[in-house]
Nucleic acid binder design. Sequence first.
DNA 1: ATAGGGTTAG
Length: 742
Amino acid sequence: MSMPITSLPPHHRVSPPSPTTYISANKDRYFSNHPTILLINRSSNSKQLKQIHAQMLRNGLFYDPFSASTLVSAFALSSVQDIDYAHKLFDQIPQPNTYTWNTLIRAYSSSQTPIQSLLIFTQMIYQCNEVLPNKFTFPFVIKAAAELLDRRVGEVVHGMVVKMSLGSDVFVLNSLIHFYESCGCLDSAYKVFLNIPVRDVVSWNSMITGFAQGDSPDEALKLFHEMQREGFRPDEVTMMSVLTACTKKLDLEVGRWVHSNIEKNGIRGSLNLNNALVDMYVKCGSVEDAQKLFDKMPEKDIVSWTTMLVGYARSGHYVTARRHFESMPSQDIAAWNALISACEQSGNAKEALAIFNELQVSNKAAPDGVTLVSTLSACAQVGAMDMGGWIHVYIKKHKIKLTCHLITSLIDMYSKCGDLNKALEVFNSSDDKDVFVWSAMIAGFAMHGHGRDAIGLFKKMQESNIKPNGVTFTNLLCACSHTGLLQDGRDFFKKMEPVYGITPGVKHYACMVDMLGRAGHLEEAISLIKSMPMPPLASVYGALLGACKLHGNVEVAEQASARLLELEPWNHGAYVLLSNIYAKSGKWDKVANLRKQMKDVGLKKEPGCSSVEVNGTVHEFVVGDNTHAQSKLIYGKLNEVFEKLKSNGYEPNRSQVLQCVEEEDMQEQALHLHSEKLAIAFGLISLTKSQPIRVMKNLRVCRDCHNVAKMISEVYDREILLRDRYRFHHFKAGDCSCKDYW
DNA sequence: ATAGGGTTAG
């Protein structure tokens, strides 16, 4: 063997050196036993293949279509995977046959650039006097169209299939089913499926998979039964798709049945199938079953370990999850992601941020888009904007792909941390916005009380032909509610079903009840609740109760809280609201009674907790907190603040102190100790005047704190942003962005 | 000589 060819001349077709040397096409098979061909088939490295190429050029074997094709396919499809080289080779072949074309189209269809498949296919058709596509060509081309999610291309190819009389080839039709499913056209896929003259297992599997992965797990299960009725034996892939359906349905019983069905059918419990089973048990809520299977799996891979980790983490077994994580053979980024997202989703955002930091310091894996989505969401929860901004920079620096998911998270983080302008900047700079991106921005406007902007954005969204979903409407109605845009809200709600095809859910009703109640239309709110087609959730009564407090309606409040406590006996918010309503109307006996009830049930008022971020560190304060290192300074500042405010006419508003403190000065003290006041005081001493004080609170802000914040913003000339459980308050020059409508 | 279907983290 001699010099390898490392570079080939520019793409152009060369003619064979001497036509007499070659054997005609019908004797192609002669070469399949040629030593060089055998060598190609045994060769698995690129250098060796290139040497063979050189030899074939010299001895002329390259100009035999069969031999050249074998070489192309070795480069394109074997472990060598050098498609570029294969393509260059292809361009050198004088008369590629259909097999050669197919090889290249096939290689590209599962490459990073499936579009190349389509381009080569087009070339192939334009030279139709030489060769024609055959039944092998189409599955590759259709696969490329599926990869590209190009519905139009696929439909055109489908047309060609029919014209070329391949419309009943089961391989081609199975690919078409898969294609239509990846483009989200389950109906078309099903039509193809129904029209297959003789189906095979793959036809059934493809269709079951389509239903399972789409939003029709019930259809998938139905088809699974039908398949068995028609005498087909399910295989491993069938069972995996059926498990996907169970997982979607969150139906443990059906899942267990499938598990036994697998054993009954004698399907080999492969690694993949076992992984799918573990995943089903985890998602359907039985970590015990998942663990039982995991423990006896003969072979485990990183997916098995990660799935089990997710199981522990989601079920709240954090210590077990951590131990499992430590004992994993290797911790890839997916494992870290599972840990981070589990913390973030179970409301333990601080822990999620700690783990992210640990990942950064350990340098064991590189954060990817998924990591950042979870971490940003944790930042949003605790209001850690410095950290969130740092991640934004990280994304740019490491050129992490800005998916819609990531953009949504960034918008959400900036909005929830109080920087609506940054959120808008991200929104405006993204050129490919999906429904979630739009919805997140609408939510941003909503929580900052920019109702008109939210409505304006909703209109723009429609001009961009993005269809709103249920979440979009929740955010939109929420925006109307916060800004008191009663009529707009009513209109949107009315149009949801007939115009946008979205059935109002409990959340939408809760928004409407809140909107109507807040605006004083209690009767309308009550009759809306009565008209609900589904049982109202606690949030609906919670909204009504809030409205009662605002408008001092004791009778309705009693009914609403009774219903609320039926649903959620542990809901302290209900007790506190009702107690405040009683207190406001002077019904002290009822207040005392309620307090006793709370004690009997063993409920304590959820402690108020506020945090403020200073130079990247989030400082947390609970009511009457004295654990902070600068506690003395903070209380000193607080006293100074009250002196100053009093000389400016401040009077404490005690209406919302839970009446467990009878003495007046004690009440005043309790008021002064509210966590948001501590956080604001800390902000005053540790931030410069140009930095807004951003406070995040777990409960609703009380009247008095709201009032104090307004005054501080004027007297100290500071900007204060306060996020409570419900919305943002933006205090500036003595006013609040909520215009006291909250 | 060539083909189609499936599992983890948001």
